[in-house]
Simulated scan of single mutants.
Amino acid sequence: MIPLSVLDLSFVSSDSTPAQALHDTLALARHVDTLGYRRYWLAEHHALPNVASPAPEIMIGQIAAATRTLRVGSGGIMLPNHAPLMVAERFRVLEALFPDRIDLGIGRAPGTDGVTARALRRREAPSGNGGDDFLDRLQELLFWDGGFPEGHPFGQIQATPAGVALPPLFLLGSSDYSAQLAAQIGAGFAFAQHFSGIPAEGPMRAYRQMFKPSRLGAEPHAILAVAAICAETDAEAERLASSARLSTLRRERGEYRPLPSLAEALEYPYSPSEQARIERGRDRLHVGSPATLRPHLTALAESVQADELMIVTAIPDQTARHDSYRLLAA
């Protein structure tokens, strides 16, 4: 059976608060820790009213301390927002405190809008790559772990805590770019099928076919991140999915509002064009009972050669959300 993991954005619902969303994350992590889930990853987003997850490294420590068996990691650290040395040291600290339980997932996007990205980076002059210095930052991060070339100006700096290696590295992506880069450096790869505009099969298979073993990894490890909602019956799962579907519709219009309550979503008067957009997005939100989702998700994982499935579930009712993960695990 393919392993299951969790991706958590700490969704803020219309009938709750961002602070409560963080406590809900801790409660969900404790819950899935008892269900056999393999990983629990936290996202990084900034200045979004529907997501309360700007600092995954803080939540990783909290969740690792509150659970026993989960691997806990970032899904991901948005490297353009951070100095590579800070990332290296923070994740060395986590690895020292929770050995062999931490993952370092790295993303290329800023996880926010352009103005907020500028506030995070404080850059006045663009790099020589049109402002995209992701490759430079990634290379520097790897140097902090493996050592700088002779003569490098940072070569005399000791990243702390000394003697602790970085956790396993994964590159995150929704296109071919990160898949090919992850394969080239021998890192793990996680494909975001839940919001990608392209099918997962191409990037996932390309990653496996192009993988080059390195000190980062001897074999490829591909994770498929999917949005899924499970309930006892297909009808109940469809009812619960109404909040996520309305939220997605709003996000596509540039409206980053809190996750609507179930009552609000069920009463929303969809226009014909809006309903058509919902129908077109059904392949990115997997909904149903255990009997429906088990063969569907198994076939999906096999078709893209995924080593594990990482589930993101947006349900405002936390009891129903916990039940969804329980049913998926069972």
Rank of each mutant, 00 (worst) to 15 (best):
Q193N: 09
L327G: 04
L327P: 07
A43N: 04
S324W: 13
L35P: 10
F11T: 10
S175H: 12
L120D: 00
V312P: 00
L285M: 09
A88Y: 05
Q318F: 12
P258R: 08
R30L: 02
H194V: 09
P49D: 14
A265C: 03
H194L: 15
A29Q: 08
M204F: 05
P269W: 10
E140W: 11
T248I: 00
S74T: 12
L181A: 03
L104H: 07
A263H: 07
A263G: 08
F191V: 14
A244F: 02
T292W: 05
A109F: 01
S273G: 02
L85R: 13
T313I: 06
E140M: 15
D176H: 12
L166V: 01
A55E: 07
A291S: 13
P213D: 08
L135K: 07
A47I: 04
E95Y: 01
R90W: 05
L70H: 06
A182W: 11
L293F: 06
A231I: 12
E279C: 06
M310W: 02
I102T: 10
L48F: 07
D15E: 14
M59A: 07
A306M: 06
S127A: 05
G217H: 11
A187C: 12
A227F: 02
R326E: 11
C230F: 11
G173P: 12
G111A: 06
L7A: 03
V164P: 05
D176A: 09
G36I: 05
A43W: 09
E302G: 11
R251G: 11
A320K: 14
L70R: 06
A47V: 04
A228N: 08
A55I: 09
L309I: 02
S273P: 10
E238A: 04
P168K: 03
V32Y: 14
P199W: 02
A276G: 06
F11G: 03
P167Y: 10
Y207L: 00
C230E: 08
L266A: 10
S324K: 08
V32G: 03
D136W: 08
D323A: 15
A299E: 13
A65M: 11
V87T: 01
T233C: 08
L141Q: 09
G197V: 00
T319I: 04
I198W: 00
F154C: 03
Y268G: 05
E201C: 09
R123H: 10
V51F: 08
G36D: 06
Y325C: 06
E89W: 00
L216W: 15
E267A: 14
A276C: 02
S289F: 05
F195Q: 07
A329C: 09
A228R: 11
P316W: 00
E89V: 13
G107V: 04
A179N: 15
A119S: 07
G146W: 10
G75I: 06
A276T: 09
F191K: 14
D145A: 01
R321D: 01
L216D: 04
F134N: 01
Y256Q: 03
L309Y: 09
E267H: 08
H23V: 15
R294W: 03
S178G: 10
D8S: 07
L135S: 04
I60P: 02
L309H: 12
